[in-house]
């Protein structure tokens, strides 16, 4: 197996945390990858797939990782890169070297708040299940032609669009001190999505049911307001605004429920 030569730059050293099965012990492997301009972490993983051997020259299996769009819009390739949850595709090696120096080792791990499936692949089913719990959809009257939807003023569209760019990547949950593997906390992703659906003129038909989930176990009262979520969101979704919004609505909802009962 001939490995392509490095181009005038020291190779990049990667420490990658691996795990063969959900119940097996994790272990670390080191890889040395020839530098090329404009590399990202995905192209490093692709390189290792084509030349699967460790820095010590031992043959190993290619690294398993979720991947699809490579332009930071599908959310697949989220992992911990130098300890920070982000997408591998938009993690540019030149930038990281600029920050840490050319000789610095880059560490890659699976996210820690979701069960590991294999290597860097984690199981994010919980995020999608929570979307089901909050009725994350607009309850339209079927798919026959019933004319246009409600007219929406541009400022409202701006707010809706910003919230609708959530790609269910999990960065906000990984960064959140309240969200753990064991508990039921729903986290910023869901708060923001509830706000999105409850703001929509048709979506708000189910607003109360969503608020019930927000008031329940793992809901808004469990948020510690650490504000880590908003710092790591790759789409710059105003997550803390959403948390504040849900908080205010929850108070109103609680008073309303109290008065009705």
């Amino acid at each position: 197996m001939t490995v392509p030569q490095t181009q005038n730059q020291p190779p990049i050293v990667f420490n990658i945390k691996r795990q063969d099965k959900p119940d097996s012990m994790p272990y670390w492997q080191t890889f040395s990858v020839p530098y090329r301009p404009n590399m990202n972490v995905t192209s490093v993983l692709q390189y290792i797939s084509a030349y699967p051997q460790t820095a010590e020259g031992e043959k190993t299996a290619p690294i398993n990782y979720d991947v699809a769009c490579l332009e930071e819009v599908c959310g697949s390739c989220t992992m911990l890169i130098n300890g920070v949850a982000r997408q591998a595709c938009s993690a540019l090696i030149d930038q990281m070297r600029g920050e840490k120096g050319a000789e610095a080792t880059i560490t890659i791990e699976p996210m820690s708040k979701f069960p590991v499936v294999r290597d860097l692949i984690v199981d994010r089913t919980r995020m999608f299940e929570n979307l089901k719990r909050i009725k994350g959809w607009i309850p339209v009257d079927g798919y026959y032609n019933l004319g246009a939807g409600p007219k929406i003023e541009p400022r409202k569209q701006d707010s809706l669009y910003a919230l609708s760019r959530c790609m269910t990547c999990g960065c906000c949950l990984e960064a959140c001190p309240q969200f753990t593997l064991e508990n039921a906390f729903v986290g910023a992703q869901i708060f923001s999505q509830v706000r999105y659906f409850n703001m929509h003129p048709t979506g708000k038909v189910d607003a109360d049911e969503r608020m019930e989930v927000m008031m329940g176990d793992g809901g808004i009262t469990d948020c510690g307001n650490a504000q880590n979520c908003v710092k790591v969101c790759p789409k710059e979704i105003p997550l803390t605004e959403s948390i504040g919004w849900i908080g205010r609505k929850a108070t109103v909802y609680a008073v309303k429920e109290f008065l009705v009962k």
């Binding site: 003023e153 569209q157 669009y161």
Partner: peptide, 22 residues
């Protein structure tokens, strides 16, 4: 045109004009 209307009803945040049209 019917497809667009349906997507509009399903909540797609289409860009809007000042008056609120798509």
């Amino acid at each position: 045109p019917d497809v667009i209307n349906l997507l509009d009803r399903m909540g797609v945040p289409f860009n809007r004009t000042a008056e609120g049209f798509r």
